[in-house]
């Protein structure tokens, strides 16, 4: 099981260098990153003149990975999800942000921290399936998942609590592969003791591998809070693409992007 970022880099290096297409690199950040990733033994950068050219190379299998590089986020996702590109559907994309918990020697995953704004229950199922697949790549066979809400009881005024309850039931019936509990608030999800104090006997409390966040306002901003106010490096993975794709979100440092490339490499 992969328990920290160092192990991600090691595993990626062991799988060998991957060819990574990057459209029109021009910033210092991107050039330095490509240099570093090459030096580390992760990738062979393949700079390409135009965005659609890079996407075509990824689609044809000329490269193993695709990197957003200096392309704008909206442009890049649009180009990736037009039908002709054949790489992804916009509604099926999700993003996972990973953080290390050194005291417990393990990783936690937050999703969807970038792509879907207000996912409905069907999209949440897809987001979870992506995260469960991803957890398996890290060696977590049966991830424990908290479907977060503001409350622990189903409250029809709080849609995330209803979604969470449905997802928990689906997991109970083995329609989803992880162990999902919800609705849980963050306080209970992150501590068995606190959840017991509230009278909840939760199979995931205190051992959560995957936090499913209710909507983009919570998920994107919480990723930012962890990064800036927790001063933590994170790693990220875009899910739902036929070829592993590395994004360039602004709240990820160069080292985070290096980790993103490593994560993409082990998914090839």
């Amino acid at each position: 099981m992969i328990r920290n970022f160092k192990q991600i880099l090691e595993k990626a290096r062991n799988t060998g260098r991957k060819k990574l297409a990057v459209p029109a690199p021009r910033s210092r950040r991107v050039f330095q990153l490509l240099k570093e990733a090459e030096k580390t033994g992760l990738i062979i950068p393949v700079p390409v003149g135009a965005l659609d050219e890079a996407i075509a190379m990824a689609q044809n299998g000329d490269v193993d990975l695709l990197f957003q590089g200096d392309a704008g986020m909206e442009d890049f996702i649009n180009a990736l999800t037009v039908k002709e590109a054949g790489i992804a559907e916009r509604e099926s994309l999700s993003y996972i942000s990973l953080f290390e918990l050194p005291s417990e020697n393990r990783l936690i995953l937050l999703t969807d921290t970038l792509m879907q704004a207000f996912p409905g229950i069907k999209q949440k199922v897809l987001i979870l399936e992506h995260a469960i697949d991803f957890a398996r790549i890290l060696g977590i066979e049966k991830p424990r998942i908290a479907a977060l809400s503001t409350v622990e009881l189903v409250n029809f005024n709080v849609p995330s609590s209803v979604d969470a309850a449905v997802l928990a039931k689906m997991s109970e019936r083995r329609q989803l592969k992880g162990i999902i509990d919800g609705p849980l608030d963050i306080d209970c999800a992150s501590s068995r003791e606190r959840s017991l104090r509230k009278g909840l006997e939760s199979p995931v409390a205190g051992q959560v591998d995957i936090y499913l966040l209710p909507d983009i306002e919570a998920s994107y901003s919480i990723a930012e809070v962890l990064v800036f106010l927790g001063r933590r490096i994170l790693a990220g993975a875009l899910m739902g693409t036929k070829v592993p794709v590395v994004l360039n979100p602004r709240f990820e440092s160069s080292y985070s992007l290096l980790l993103d490339m490593a994560l993409a490499s082990i998914r090839v």
Binding site: S149, V158, D185, I186, S190
Partner: peptide, 23 residues
Amino acid sequence: LVHNLEFGNIFVKIDSVAERDFF
């Protein structure tokens, strides 16, 4: 100012996620 309670509720208790680590 947070947009909704879904975010506010997690933000205010964010340290619970990693109280022994970074919060």
